[in-house]
């Protein structure tokens, strides 16, 4: 049922090191997420023109969510092809739903 993973010690060390490096990457990602958040909040507080701010903060949110998915939730790792496919299926249905409820409710 489960493949026995009796790894060679050198291989094990290599994997551990890789994870350590990845952990550093994740801290950088986290810092970026905090910076994005601060940018979003300060743009709104600075009362910059609505038509400019709204698209920018939505893009920043989307990028931040991408960081969450790919780095924090490991969607970049292999073995996540199908989860990614089904998750994006959900995103597709979600997109249509939101679009319709924004555009096709009041007229």
């Amino acid at each position: 049922m489960a493949e026995k993973s009796s790894l060679h010690p050198a291989q094990l060390d290599y994997e551990r090191q890789k994870r350590k490096d990845e952990m550093k990457q994740q801290v950088v990602t986290f810092a970026l997420m905090i910076i994005f958040t601060i940018i979003s909040f300060s743009m709104v507080i600075a009362e910059i023109d609505k038509l400019f701010v709204i698209p920018v903060i939505i893009v920043l949110a989307a990028v931040q969510v991408g960081f969450q998915l790919y780095y924090f939730m490991h969607m970049s790792h292999k073995g996540h092809e199908l989860p990614a496919f089904m998750f994006y299926g959900g995103v597709f249905a979600a997109f249509l739903t939101i679009l319709a409820l924004i555009a096709l409710v009041w007229w």
């Binding site: 249905a93 249509l96 739903t97 319709a100 409820l101 096709l104 409710v105 009041w106």
Partner: peptide, 12 residues
């Protein structure tokens, strides 16, 4: 409120 929201959610 808006009753068309129900129609959308129901038919989605």
């Amino acid at each position: 409120g808006n009753s068309v929201i129900w129609q959308h959610l129901f038919w989605i």
